[in-house]
Protein backbone atom coordinates (compact mmCIF):
# COMPACT_ATOMS: atom_id res chain seq x y z
CA UNK A 1 0.00 0.00 0.00
CA UNK A 2 1.50 3.29 -1.00
CA UNK A 3 0.48 6.36 0.91
CA UNK A 4 0.11 8.32 -2.34
CA UNK A 5 -3.37 6.89 -2.97
CA UNK A 6 -4.51 7.03 0.66
CA UNK A 7 -7.56 9.13 1.45
CA UNK A 8 -6.28 9.84 4.92
CA UNK A 9 -2.72 9.90 6.17
CA UNK A 10 -1.90 10.82 9.77
CA UNK A 11 1.78 11.14 10.67
CA UNK A 12 2.83 11.57 14.29
CA UNK A 13 -0.35 13.40 15.18
CA UNK A 14 -0.71 14.61 18.76
CA UNK A 15 -3.60 16.52 20.26
CA UNK A 16 -3.29 18.06 23.70
CA UNK A 17 -6.13 19.61 25.64
CA UNK A 18 -5.77 21.90 28.58
CA UNK A 19 -7.31 20.82 31.82
CA UNK A 20 -8.85 23.12 34.34
CA UNK A 21 -11.98 24.94 35.26
CA UNK A 22 -12.27 26.70 31.93
CA UNK A 23 -11.09 30.07 30.80
CA UNK A 24 -11.11 33.14 32.96
CA UNK A 25 -10.00 36.55 31.76
CA UNK A 26 -6.65 36.03 33.45
CA UNK A 27 -5.90 32.59 32.00
CA UNK A 28 -7.21 33.76 28.66
CA UNK A 29 -4.67 36.55 28.47
CA UNK A 30 -1.91 34.17 29.47
CA UNK A 31 -3.12 31.69 26.91
CA UNK A 32 -3.21 34.21 24.10
CA UNK A 33 0.15 35.80 24.71
CA UNK A 34 2.34 33.17 26.30
CA UNK A 35 2.91 29.49 26.47
CA UNK A 36 2.48 29.27 30.19
CA UNK A 37 2.25 26.19 32.34
CA UNK A 38 -1.04 24.37 32.12
CA UNK A 39 -2.17 20.96 33.14
CA UNK A 40 -2.58 19.21 29.85
CA UNK A 41 -3.75 15.85 28.70
CA UNK A 42 -2.69 14.13 25.51
CA UNK A 43 -5.94 12.93 23.99
CA UNK A 44 -4.05 11.64 20.96
CA UNK A 45 -0.36 10.88 21.12
CA UNK A 46 1.92 10.46 18.07
CA UNK A 47 -0.64 8.51 16.08
CA UNK A 48 0.01 7.25 12.54
CA UNK A 49 -2.98 6.13 10.52
CA UNK A 50 -3.87 5.50 6.89
CA UNK A 51 -7.12 4.93 5.10
CA UNK A 52 -7.16 3.54 1.56
CA UNK A 53 -10.12 3.62 -0.82
CA UNK A 54 -12.32 0.58 -0.29
CA UNK A 55 -11.02 0.12 3.25
CA UNK A 56 -12.81 0.23 6.59
CA UNK A 57 -10.74 0.93 9.67
CA UNK A 58 -12.17 0.30 13.14
CA UNK A 59 -11.02 2.18 16.21
CA UNK A 60 -11.38 0.43 19.57
CA UNK A 61 -10.39 1.37 23.08
CA UNK A 62 -11.92 2.32 26.39
CA UNK A 63 -13.49 5.72 26.98
CA UNK A 64 -10.86 8.41 26.67
CA UNK A 65 -8.64 6.35 24.40
CA UNK A 66 -8.68 9.06 21.75
CA UNK A 67 -11.08 7.56 19.21
CA UNK A 68 -13.39 10.55 18.98
CA UNK A 69 -10.50 13.01 18.99
CA UNK A 70 -8.99 11.27 15.96
CA UNK A 71 -12.29 11.58 14.11
CA UNK A 72 -12.63 15.24 15.12
CA UNK A 73 -9.10 15.93 13.85
CA UNK A 74 -9.90 14.27 10.51
CA UNK A 75 -13.19 16.17 10.26
CA UNK A 76 -11.19 19.41 10.66
CA UNK A 77 -13.23 20.34 13.67
CA UNK A 78 -10.13 20.81 15.79
CA UNK A 79 -6.51 21.34 14.68
CA UNK A 80 -3.67 19.01 15.76
CA UNK A 81 -1.09 20.16 18.32
CA UNK A 82 1.70 18.28 16.53
CA UNK A 83 2.12 16.20 13.42
CA UNK A 84 0.66 16.23 9.96
CA UNK A 85 -2.63 15.12 8.41
CA UNK A 86 -3.20 14.66 4.68
CA UNK A 87 -6.75 14.46 3.36
CA UNK A 88 -7.62 13.53 -0.21
CA UNK A 89 -11.26 14.13 -0.96
CA UNK A 90 -14.24 15.08 1.11
CA UNK A 91 -15.39 13.37 4.29
CA UNK A 92 -18.91 12.93 5.55
CA UNK A 93 -18.86 12.91 9.31
CA UNK A 94 -21.27 11.15 11.62
CA UNK A 95 -20.06 12.76 14.82
CA UNK A 96 -22.48 14.11 17.43
CA UNK A 97 -25.35 13.38 15.07
CA UNK A 98 -28.28 15.61 15.88
CA UNK A 99 -26.17 18.28 17.53
CA UNK A 100 -26.26 20.40 14.40
CA UNK A 101 -30.05 20.56 14.24
CA UNK A 102 -32.11 23.52 15.27
CA UNK A 103 -35.06 22.27 17.26
CA UNK A 104 -37.39 25.15 16.37
CA UNK A 105 -37.03 24.32 12.68
CA UNK A 106 -38.96 21.55 10.98
CA UNK A 107 -37.38 18.34 9.74
CA UNK A 108 -37.48 19.61 6.18
CA UNK A 109 -35.83 22.90 7.12
CA UNK A 110 -33.15 21.07 9.08
CA UNK A 111 -32.42 18.81 6.12
CA UNK A 112 -31.93 21.89 3.93
CA UNK A 113 -29.72 23.54 6.54
CA UNK A 114 -27.55 20.48 7.32
CA UNK A 115 -27.25 19.68 3.63
CA UNK A 116 -25.95 23.17 2.94
CA UNK A 117 -23.35 22.89 5.68
CA UNK A 118 -22.26 19.55 4.21
CA UNK A 119 -21.75 21.44 0.95
CA UNK A 120 -24.78 20.21 -0.97
CA UNK A 121 -26.58 22.49 -3.39
CA UNK A 122 -30.26 23.22 -3.00
CA UNK A 123 -31.07 21.13 -6.10
CA UNK A 124 -28.96 18.25 -4.78
CA UNK A 125 -30.77 18.33 -1.43
CA UNK A 126 -34.21 18.48 -3.04
CA UNK A 127 -33.32 15.53 -5.24
CA UNK A 128 -32.09 13.46 -2.29
CA UNK A 129 -34.82 14.53 0.11
CA UNK A 130 -37.21 11.63 -0.58
CA UNK A 131 -34.47 9.06 0.01
CA UNK A 132 -33.28 10.79 3.20
CA UNK A 133 -36.83 10.92 4.51
CA UNK A 134 -37.43 7.28 3.65
CA UNK A 135 -34.27 6.11 5.38
CA UNK A 136 -34.98 8.21 8.49
CA UNK A 137 -38.66 7.15 8.55
CA UNK A 138 -39.83 10.67 9.34
CA UNK A 139 -42.17 11.32 6.39
CA UNK A 140 -45.20 12.12 8.56
CA UNK A 141 -43.18 14.54 10.69
CA UNK A 142 -41.34 16.32 7.89
CA UNK A 143 -43.08 19.65 8.50
CA UNK A 144 -43.18 19.39 12.29
CA UNK A 145 -40.68 21.31 14.45
CA UNK A 146 -37.87 19.05 15.48
CA UNK A 147 -38.47 19.58 19.19
CA UNK A 148 -41.45 17.22 18.82
CA UNK A 149 -39.24 14.44 17.45
CA UNK A 150 -38.23 11.40 19.46
CA UNK A 151 -34.54 10.80 20.14
CA UNK A 152 -34.59 7.93 17.68
CA UNK A 153 -36.05 10.07 14.91
CA UNK A 154 -33.43 12.77 15.42
CA UNK A 155 -30.68 10.18 15.36
CA UNK A 156 -32.04 8.50 12.23
CA UNK A 157 -32.45 11.81 10.42
CA UNK A 158 -28.92 12.92 11.29
CA UNK A 159 -27.50 9.64 10.05
CA UNK A 160 -29.67 9.62 6.92
CA UNK A 161 -28.47 13.09 5.88
CA UNK A 162 -24.81 12.19 6.43
CA UNK A 163 -25.25 8.94 4.48
CA UNK A 164 -26.50 10.89 1.46
CA UNK A 165 -23.56 13.26 1.21
CA UNK A 166 -21.36 12.57 -1.82
CA UNK A 167 -18.25 11.86 0.19
CA UNK A 168 -14.95 10.11 -0.52
CA UNK A 169 -14.86 8.65 2.99
CA UNK A 170 -16.96 8.53 6.13
CA UNK A 171 -16.05 9.24 9.74
CA UNK A 172 -18.40 7.40 12.07
CA UNK A 173 -18.35 7.85 15.83
CA UNK A 174 -20.19 5.40 18.06
CA UNK A 175 -23.61 6.17 16.68
CA UNK A 176 -24.61 2.83 15.32
CA UNK A 177 -25.21 1.26 18.72
CA UNK A 178 -27.58 4.06 19.70
CA UNK A 179 -30.04 3.16 16.94
CA UNK A 180 -32.63 0.40 17.21
CA UNK A 181 -31.88 -3.07 15.90
CA UNK A 182 -33.60 -2.79 12.52
CA UNK A 183 -32.03 0.59 11.75
CA UNK A 184 -28.66 -0.78 12.85
CA UNK A 185 -28.93 -3.60 10.35
CA UNK A 186 -29.93 -1.20 7.60
CA UNK A 187 -27.07 1.11 8.44
CA UNK A 188 -24.59 -1.72 8.53
CA UNK A 189 -25.55 -2.92 5.08
CA UNK A 190 -25.46 0.61 3.72
CA UNK A 191 -21.99 1.25 5.10
CA UNK A 192 -20.87 -2.08 3.65
CA UNK A 193 -22.31 -1.23 0.24
CA UNK A 194 -20.80 2.26 0.38
CA UNK A 195 -17.30 0.91 1.03
CA UNK A 196 -17.61 -1.84 -1.61
CA UNK A 197 -18.68 0.87 -4.05
CA UNK A 198 -15.32 2.61 -3.69
CA UNK A 199 -15.89 4.58 -0.49
CA UNK A 200 -13.99 4.14 2.75
CA UNK A 201 -14.74 4.58 6.42
CA UNK A 202 -13.20 4.98 9.84
CA UNK A 203 -15.51 3.70 12.55
CA UNK A 204 -15.09 4.17 16.28
CA UNK A 205 -17.18 1.81 18.33
CA UNK A 206 -17.47 -0.32 21.43
CA UNK A 207 -19.47 -2.90 19.46
CA UNK A 208 -16.75 -5.37 18.67
CA UNK A 209 -18.96 -7.77 16.69
CA UNK A 210 -20.07 -4.93 14.48
CA UNK A 211 -16.48 -3.82 13.86
CA UNK A 212 -15.55 -7.40 13.06
CA UNK A 213 -18.28 -7.58 10.41
CA UNK A 214 -17.53 -4.16 8.86
CA UNK A 215 -13.80 -3.61 9.19
CA UNK A 216 -10.74 -4.95 7.43
CA UNK A 217 -8.29 -3.30 9.75
CA UNK A 218 -8.56 -2.29 13.37
CA UNK A 219 -6.54 -0.05 15.63
CA UNK A 220 -6.56 -0.48 19.40
CA UNK A 221 -5.99 2.81 21.21
CA UNK A 222 -5.21 3.35 24.86
CA UNK A 223 -4.72 6.78 26.45
CA UNK A 224 -4.17 8.32 23.04
CA UNK A 225 -1.55 5.84 21.87
CA UNK A 226 -1.80 3.03 19.32
CA UNK A 227 -1.42 -0.21 21.25
CA UNK A 228 -1.98 -2.62 18.40
CA UNK A 229 -2.98 -2.51 14.76
CA UNK A 230 -3.57 -5.08 12.05
CA UNK A 231 -6.30 -7.29 10.59
CA UNK A 232 -9.53 -6.53 12.42
CA UNK A 233 -10.04 -10.06 13.76
CA UNK A 234 -6.58 -10.27 15.33
CA UNK A 235 -6.73 -6.84 16.94
CA UNK A 236 -10.24 -7.33 18.27
CA UNK A 237 -9.42 -10.78 19.69
CA UNK A 238 -6.40 -9.35 21.46
CA UNK A 239 -8.48 -6.43 22.72
CA UNK A 240 -11.07 -8.85 24.13
CA UNK A 241 -8.33 -10.81 25.85
CA UNK A 242 -7.00 -7.56 27.36
CA UNK A 243 -10.44 -6.68 28.66
CA UNK A 244 -10.84 -10.10 30.25
CA UNK A 245 -7.48 -9.81 31.92
CA UNK A 246 -8.08 -6.47 33.61
CA UNK A 247 -11.82 -6.01 33.90
CA UNK A 248 -11.44 -2.84 35.96
CA UNK A 249 -9.48 -0.92 33.33
CA UNK A 250 -12.51 0.41 31.50
CA UNK A 251 -12.96 4.12 32.05
CA UNK A 252 -9.91 4.55 34.26
CA UNK A 253 -8.90 8.18 34.87
CA UNK A 254 -6.02 9.40 32.77
CA UNK A 255 -3.01 10.91 34.44
CA UNK A 256 -2.61 14.59 33.54
CA UNK A 257 0.70 15.37 31.92
CA UNK A 258 2.31 18.59 33.05
CA UNK A 259 3.73 20.18 29.94
CA UNK A 260 7.13 21.79 29.71
Amino acid sequence: MSSSSALVVMRGVTKRYRLGSGPTAATALRGLFSRGHFDEVEAVSKVDLELQPGQTVGLVGSNGAGKSTILRLLAEITPPTEGRIELRGRPSSLLDVGAGFHYELTGRENILFSGAIYGMTRAEIREKLPRIVEMAQVDRFLDTPMKRYSTGMILRLGIAIAMHVDADFMLIDEIISAADASFQRQLESRIGAYVRGGGAAIIASHELELLERLCHTAVHLDQGRVVRRGPARDVLDAYRADLDQKPDSEGVERKPVLSK
Binding site: P79, P80, E82, G83, I85, E86, G89
Partner: peptide, 8 residues
Protein backbone atom coordinates in the same frame (compact mmCIF):
# COMPACT_ATOMS: atom_id res chain seq x y z
CA UNK B 1 -9.08 15.02 -5.39
CA UNK B 2 -6.45 17.49 -4.34
CA UNK B 3 -4.55 16.95 -1.13
CA UNK B 4 -5.34 18.99 1.90
CA UNK B 5 -2.52 19.22 4.42
CA UNK B 6 -3.32 19.98 8.04
CA UNK B 7 -0.58 20.82 10.49
CA UNK B 8 -0.61 22.84 13.73
Amino acid sequence: AQVKIITP
